[in-house]
């Protein structure tokens, strides 16, 4: 008891009272309101880039979801983004069907393939899934180029059918991406509070306890990959619509690793501001450094390592500082 008393917080200052107001929900609402009005202030090309940021944020969220709920790492999420993007692209260019039908299709395909690829390594250490996804990432460009009858090969596909007919296409490409991102973030936040989400987390952190409560570890592991694959496919679908073109260049092995880097840079965060940071990193760094391409992998590598080392040393440094403050 005395321990608790000695740690009583000092009277809140104005600043901490303000930051106390900023619950995750409030921050998200403020952020979304800001983003809603941003296109009015920015030019067309920035609006376009921001749309891509939102789409990539969903991809970063998919990777983070797998790390947080499954404790597993994927370096092959371009498979799922490609799946979603080509669902939208093919339905659009071949049949003229808009997002109303292609997004649900992308989601179903993403979940199905996520389950399929998680199944073989269901009983094994997490690295087996990582190696499987490595092969997956390298196989994606090959598949796209060889199924060129469907995918358009190197030239790719152009997505032009509007989501809402009669509304300016540039605005649609921005707001559909934003809406998708907000929806996915909201769904993930709800998952955290749901019984299923709790069960998944329990199966990750305390497998024996989860077994005792009737959650099978195998079920938890493959369903996390299914959810993550579905979210990845939504990222691809959004990317296709907001980026307007779908081509193999967007689904290379490096793109897959960049999604993981984005996830690490956002500290595997699942909240809207965090995934926006990750998505912005993935989208903006290649654009800013487009003149000096060889520096991009170096910078990504350094960012990845830097964040991991910060994540490792920061709690220790903070603890040491706190100890000093208490003794001093």
């Amino acid at each position: 008891m005395s321990d608790q008393v000695s740690h009583m917080p000092s009277p809140p200052s104005a600043l901490s009272r303000l930051s106390g107001l900023a619950t995750p929900g409030v921050t998200a609402v403020v952020l979304v309101t800001l983003l809603l009005f941003l296109p009015a202030l920015l030019g067309g090309s920035w609006t376009f880039t921001l749309g891509l940021c939102f789409a990539n944020s969903i991809g970063v969220l998919a990777v983070s979801l797998l790390v947080r709920y499954g404790g597993e790492v994927s370096i092959g999420h371009t498979f799922f983004t490609a799946l979603g993007a080509y669902s939208v692209g093919v339905l659009d260019t071949r049949y003229g069907i808009s997002l109303w039908a292609s997004v649900p299709l992308a989601l179903v395909l993403g979940v199905a393939f996520g389950l399929l690829f998680a199944w073989p390594s269901r009983n094994l250490h997490g690295i087996y899934l990582a190696v499987t996804t490595l092969a997956l990432a390298l196989a994606v460009p090959e598949m796209i180029n060889n199924f060129d009858g469907l995918t358009g090969g190197y030239e790719g596909l152009y997505v032009a059918t509007p989501f809402l007919p009669g509304v300016d296409m540039g605005a649609q490409r921005y707001y559909v991406a934003l809406a998708m991102l907000v929806l996915v973030c909201f769904a993930v936040a709800r998952l955290r509070l749901s019984r299923q989400g709790m069960a998944l987390l329990l199966a990750k952190t305390h497998p024996a306890a989860a077994d005792a409560f009737g959650t099978r570890r195998v079920w938890a592991r493959i369903s996390v990959m299914g959810i993550s694959g579905g979210v990845g496919a939504l990222c691809g679908a959004t990317l296709a619509f907001s980026g307007s073109t779908v081509s193999p260049g967007g689904f290379t092995f490096w793109q897959a690793i960049f999604l993981l880097v984005g996830s690490v840079v956002s500290f595997y965060g699942l909240s809207l501001p965090r995934v926006l940071i990750g998505g912005a990193f993935v989208t903006l760094v290649p654009q800013l450094l487009s003149a000096s391409g060889a520096w991009i992998p170096v910078l990504y590598g350094l960012a990845l390592l830097g964040m991991i080392l910060i994540g490792h040393y920061m709690p220790r440094i903070r603890k040491a500082l706190n100890r000093n403050r208490e003794t001093g």
Binding site: G71, G126, V261, A294, I296, Y300, G301, L304, H312
Partner: peptide
């Protein structure tokens, strides 16, 4: 010694750097 998952991700970072250095 803390997390094999995190250190596996860290090796990807070194892979990226090695790739970039080769390119440079």
């Amino acid at each position: 010694f803390e997390s094999d998952l995190t250190s596996t991700i860290a090796t990807l970072g070194f892979g990226l750097i090695a790739q970039g250095v080769t390119l440079l």
